[in-house]
Design a protein around this nucleic acid. Structure first.
Length: 232
DNA sequence: CTCCGGTCGT
DNA sequence: ACGACTGGAG
């Protein structure tokens, strides 16, 4: 298969069906990075509750957040779940910002994916997906974000193995797509929107999915990963 | 591989 | 009631 053409076709199909996503416009880099940590294995609606609580108290700012104790922080982000773990992770990220840019993410402008990505991965609590989300959505750097939906959709379409590693799947996109942050931003956003609405873990809703045209056939009743017949 | 965890849809 | 949710660490 021509991977580049295939990935562009998938992108166009989702864009045509869903329209542009406009993810995280008008938000500060720190707010976006914070959201990226809080949303780990968590529905975004829960993250919004936590972000709202922080906003109401004027805490969507690294210098303000840094003054809280771990316990206070945990209380604010409680609706996001795993709040004790995430409080520690936010703390580690704040320490990272203190070290690298004096708690001002504008100071990270000028960094590249090659230098900043490994540095972020050194922070306990920031794994590959969170790092790429921060690079792409907070800093506008061309680092493709891979998530559970990306793996599930591509696997169910027979394009990649189910157990493909994060880095391999990221390169599956980055090897053939130009390093365009706007393209990466919209592509991942479209995948998440498509995944959330049509590609649930248990049972997909393939008949109405924007990507259904790429399946040779499928069973409407048992539209799970294994029941989809991969296209050639 | 297991735990973290409140919240929401089924 | 039950499992999934834009993961990551020990």
């Amino acid at each position: 298969m021509n991977r580049e053409a295939t990935l562009r076709d998938y992108y166009q199909a989702m864009l045509a069906a869903l329209g542009p996503s406009r993810w995280w416009p008008g938000r500060t880099p720190f707010e976006i990075a914070l959201g990226a940590i809080l949303t780990q294995n968590t529905a975004w609606t829960n993250v919004e509750k936590a972000m709202h609580a922080l906003r109401e108290s004027g805490l969507l700012d690294p210098r303000a957040l840094a003054r809280l104790t771990d316990e206070e922080l945990a209380t604010f982000i409680r609706p996001a779940g795993a709040f004790r773990v995430k409080a520690a992770r936010v703390r580690n990220f704040l320490l990272f910002l203190h070290r690298t840019c004096d708690l001002d993410m504008d100071g990270l402008r000028g960094e590249t994916v090659e230098t900043l990505r490994p540095a972020l991965l050194e922070v306990s609590g920031i794994g590959p997906e969170t790092a790429d989300s921060i690079l792409l959505y907070a800093l506008g750097l061309p680092s493709f974000v891979v998530d559970a939906y990306t793996r599930r959709i591509l696997n169910r379409h027979g394009l990649v193995p189910e157990d493909i590693a994060y880095g391999e799947l990221r390169e599956f996109f980055m090897d053939v797509l130009p390093p365009d942050p706007a393209l990466y931003n919209e592509y991942h956003a479209l995948i998440v929107r498509t995944g959330k609405n049509w590609c649930a873990k248990r049972q997909g809703k393939c008949p109405d999915c924007p990507l259904a045209v790429f399946l040779e056939e499928f069973s409407p009743l048992t539209c799970t990963g294994k029941s989809i017949i991969p296209h050639p």
